[in-house]
Amino acid sequence: MRRAIILCMKSCLSLLVASFLFACTSEEAPSPDGGTPSNAGQAAGDSYGASLSASETTAIHDLLKDKESFVGETLQVEGTVVGVCAMRGCWIEIGGEDGESIRFKVNDGEMVFPMAAKGSSVRAEGVWTKIVVPVEELRANEAKKAAEAGEEFDPQSISEPYIGWQLKGLGAVIDV
């Protein structure tokens, strides 16, 4: 029995050492500053998340002009990356031709956009989403922040809910 265990241990050790030594190195090129493209190095650009499927793009200007009517729709937009989440790379700000921009947000870690994407062309697809944060929640958040900073907070300073808009990210292609 013990011989069998020893034999098994020898085999495991040999297998592990051999595996470490002979496993191939990765062929995927790293994004220059921490992003996680799924097809880095391809001429068409770096892909993030799911493949783009929409056949046409929606202009950012049109989207912002009639925000409510697009809620819940899966849309593709095109523009320039004008901002990137500096902490986790979890969102990019996409600028349109006339200076307007929208936020393309993904769940933390799902896609990580590199800071180097700033200024690059992007096509992104996601679900247009309206975010409403009620007054009570805003007050609670601000009160917590103020307490942490040792500052005073007047709950009456917030009287309206926060309304935000974003494209909840499914996939993006950033030209390199």
Partner: peptide, 9 residues
């Protein structure tokens, strides 16, 4: 982030 063979390592 390397994926591919690094996953096995």
């Amino acid at each position: 982030h390397a994926k591919k063979a690094w996953t096995w390592i």
